[in-house]
């Protein structure tokens, strides 16, 4: 590697790693959005994964892979418990339930020690000195596996069912698609992915604390998926990379920096409802002749 590239890598390696974790989280948001629902639970699932993985590593010294699987399964199991009742209701209820869920997770991690009478999650201080086990290639591989998974889903019955449900879940239901089952599947996938991402993140930053994963965490992840677009798996990844590298360039904004997330969210949802990665938009812009676009924009009926 030429020396300047080497320097660049040293400087931006950690930003790159955060962008990869962000991509995974963005994908966990994307898979639910794709069925026409808004879930803000990704941050909560990430927290569950992070704590479960970190505790396993600290106390039982298990290999990273075992932690990742355990964290993902723990988040997935709780995701199923949350999704099964709520996904029968309209979309607003899921949004609200998942916001509430995130808070329950946060308060639980914060207070479980004083209730149990011994140190488990470390309360507000969180868990420190988690060994750094996550390597860059783990994350690259993780995101690659997710991309492969979503390419397979795109070409399957499941992917078409997801798209049909997003466009009109009443019509989808009348065509014999089990709307509740597919939405539960999407929600479960989302929880599994976020849980695994949480484990990787805990073993990357050495520590976990309850307040990392609150509502603001959820909003950050949502911004990835909305800016990048949630019609393709590429969207959230592009969104995560842009929004992870962007704040480095916006340091001059100082205390006003979080404003960027808000502005991006509003502008994107109003002027770019299909996100940056929108094949139809780019095709039209580049004026190339092409077959009619595959997916209609998100028009959910709740």
């Amino acid at each position: 590697m030429p020396p300047f590239l080497n320097d660049l890598w040293l400087v931006y390696r950690s930003v790159f790693e955060f962008a990869l974790i962000g991509s995974a989280l963005g994908l966990s948001m994307y898979v639910v959005l794709r069925t026409g629902l808004l879930s803000l639970a990704s941050a909560g699932f990430m927290a569950i994964g992070a704590y479960v993985g970190a505790l396993l590593t600290i106390h039982l010294h298990v290999p990273l892979l075992v932690s990742v699987l355990a964290g993902a399964l723990a988040a997935g199991g709780i995701g199923l418990l949350l999704g099964l009742p709520v996904l029968r209701l309209s979309g607003v209820y899921l949004a609200i339930a998942t916001i509430g869920f995130g808070e329950v997770v946060r308060v639980f991690m914060l207070n479980i020690d004083s209730v149990a009478g011994r140190t488990i999650t470390g309360g507000a201080l969180g868990l420190n000195n988690i060994p750094r086990k996550t390597e860059t290639w783990h994350l690259v591989l993780f995101v690659a596996v997710l991309i492969y998974l979503f390419i397979r889903i795109d070409r399957s019955r499941t992917g078409r069912a997801f798209d049909a449900i997003r466009q009109d879940h009443h019509v989808a239901a009348s065509m014999g698609i089990d709307v509740v089952r597919y939405r539960n599947l999407a929600f479960l996938l989302s929880a599994l992915i976020a849980g695994a991402a949480g484990v990787f993140s805990a073993h990357l930053t050495y520590f976990v604390s309850p307040n990392e994963y609150g509502f603001n965490g959820a909003v950050r992840i949502l911004t990835f998926a909305i800016l990048g677009g949630y019609l393709t798996w590429l969207g959230p990844i592009v969104g995560a990379f842009l929004l992870t590298f962007l704040p480095e360039l916006l340091r001059f904004l100082g205390p006003y920096r979080p404003i960027v997330n808000g502005v991006v969210l509003i502008l994107a949802i109003i002027y770019l409802p299909r996100g940056l990665v929108d094949p139809r938009f780019w095709r039209k812009t580049l004026r190339r002749r092409s077959p009619p676009p595959p997916a209609a924009p998100l028009e959910t009926s709740g």
């Binding site: 026409g36 629902l37 979309g91 909003v219 909305i226 808000g262 949802i269 409802p273 998100l298 959910t300």
Partner: peptide, 10 residues
């Protein structure tokens, strides 16, 4: 859709 308004309000 309703979802867009929630996101915008966030």
């Amino acid at each position: 859709p309703q979802l867009a308004a929630i996101i915008s309000s966030i």
